[in-house]
Amino acid sequence: MQDFASSFFLAVSLILSGDPELWSIVLLSLKVSLTAVAIAAMIGMPIGAALGVGRFAGRRALIVLINALMGLPPVVVGLMVYLLLSNSGPLGVLQLLYTPTAMIIAQVILVTPIVAALTRQVVEDLDAEYAEQLRSMGVSRLASVPTLLWDGRTSLMTAVLAGFGRATAEVGAVIIVGGNINHVTRVMTTAIALETSKGNLALALALGAILMLIAISVNAAVGLLGVRSERVAHA
């Protein structure tokens, strides 16, 4: 117990004193996850929008597939990306294994289905409401997509935040493809796992506190956005 108390106070002082090791880990985490989410949004939103307004063969199947991909286990994604990037893998020549880029790739794979699936839902619901009105105004199906995305932006933010939450919190994929190398690929989740097993509870606790704060903030932001759009919806 004494051990816990001292670790706790050490953790607080690490955070407050701006410990360089701690903050370099936090910054790398944010850099990797924000980049991954930005890329996932650029891929996932167009896919989601196309599935939301498009009517083509195989659309249903694609929607089911993407919904299923939302539940991909991170370790499996990590393993797949590892096989792709390892020296003997198809992309081995790129020498990306154990770099932040490898972690970004893994997180993009984890986050894109979330963004695509939620975007599809948002765009489809809004389209059901808008379609006749836009058609009446002479707006083509294709041209209505930016309108739907813009007017659904609050809900789309929720999708992106949900993706960011998944990216920052997962450990299974980044530990496999990043390798948890100090100052290179060590992010919050992998550092917590390592430091805990090493018995360095202070650093683990400090990182845990920051990670929790990020997770709570993201959830609060999602909640607030939800309340805002709901209030308008029932007005």
Binding site: L126, E129, Y130, E132, Q133, S136, M137, G138, V139, T147, D151, G152, V232
Partner: peptide, 30 residues
């Protein structure tokens, strides 16, 4: 022909934007 006609629905559909943005949208579309 489409551009020369318009319709107001029994249940009006307003875009999730400001009042003036709704009108401006129609002006841009036209």
């Amino acid at each position: 022909v489409r551009r020369r006609q318009a319709m107001v629905f029994q249940r009006p559909v307003v875009l999730r934007r400001s009042v003036q943005a709704n009108i401006d949208y129609a002006l841009a579309a036209a």
